[in-house]
């Protein structure tokens, strides 16, 4: 790695000691950033320098660094997971930036996602929504013979597309209303589209939407910024499916 290829970056990073702390943007200058580094490796590099100076390293969420776990987050220059389409922060590389660039890095911001420290937020609101109904609760029996449960190819594809959601929260972060509808609709759709999940589809839609509202997420205004920011390209057609599923469930009483 020759020095001529490296970049110097002006970083504006949100520092916040705890949930109760007010927090502020702190400026850092980072030299010697290779374009081949991932965005998180760039923060690792800064953190090594901070630790060497006995400063508090910047806290941020990450796990697999392969774009599949949903742990990494970060608003990068005002965009969830940065400027690239269908890319998680860990899969974003520094070649997307130029020498001398100023990069603002902030945590997801939503009432339902309180900041824990620096760039880390508490996303357990998503877990609570899943707990409200994002599972199959009926006995599906033993493994069936192949092709004994027929599923249209289109439904299998749509369910698989919805199931690609990694629950990172970029939809909430990018939505001007901090709405969780893309996440919730993907979790409702991946089950409702398949025979095992269809049995409880009505109650699931009611319970999960009710929980989402209770947790203080905003309302959808059909702007599709969520879809545009989603690292897994989840379509807002899932939101439409949830909307009609909810309405159907709400008007059809299963009791006498």
């Amino acid at each position: 790695m020759s020095d001529t290829n490296t970049m110097t970056l002006n970083l504006k990073i949100w520092r916040q000691a705890s949930t109760k702390d007010k927090g502020q943007i702190v400026d850092y200058v980072l030299e010697g950033v290779s374009p081949d580094m991932s965005f998180l490796e760039m923060i690792d590099m800064l953190n090594e320098q901070l630790v060497a100076k006995n400063d508090d390293p910047i806290a941020f969420d990450h796990d697999c660094r392969e774009g599949i776990c949903g742990m990494c987050s970060l608003m990068i220059n005002g965009q969830a997971h940065g400027p690239e389409k269908a890319t998680t922060t860990c899969q974003l590389h520094m070649r997307s930036f130029k020498d001398g660039d100023t990069i603002a890095i902030e945590p997801w911001r939503a009432r339902a996602f309180p900041v824990l420290k620096d760039l880390m937020v508490d996303r357990s609101a998503f877990d609570k929504i899943i707990e409200a109904g994002g599972f199959v609760n009926v006995n599906t029996g033993n493994a069936q013979d192949a092709n004994s449960i027929l599923i249209p190819k289109e439904n299998a594809d749509l369910a698989m597309d919805a199931a690609a959601c990694i629950g990172c929260g970029a939809c909430v972060a990018s939505c001007k209303n901090a709405s969780a509808m893309l996440f919730v609709s993907a979790k409702i759709s991946q089950l409702a589209l398949l025979p095992q999940g269809e049995v409880e589809a009505d109650q699931r839609a009611l319970s999960m939407v009710e929980k989402m509202d209770e947790l203080g997420f905003g309302n959808c205004t059909n702007e599709a910024e969520c879809e545009a920011s989603c690292p897994k390209d989840i379509s807002i057609s899932n939101i439409a499916r949830m909307n009609r599923g909810f309405l159907k469930a709400a008007v059809s009483a299963k009791t006498k």
Binding site: M75, G78, A104, R109, A178, F217, E223
Partner: peptide, 16 residues
């Protein structure tokens, strides 16, 4: 639903 606003917020250009 978002009591604290972003320091910088930019639209993707692919949605809103």
């Amino acid at each position: 639903a978002r009591p604290q606003k972003y320091y910088i917020k930019q639209k993707t250009g692919r949605g809103a």
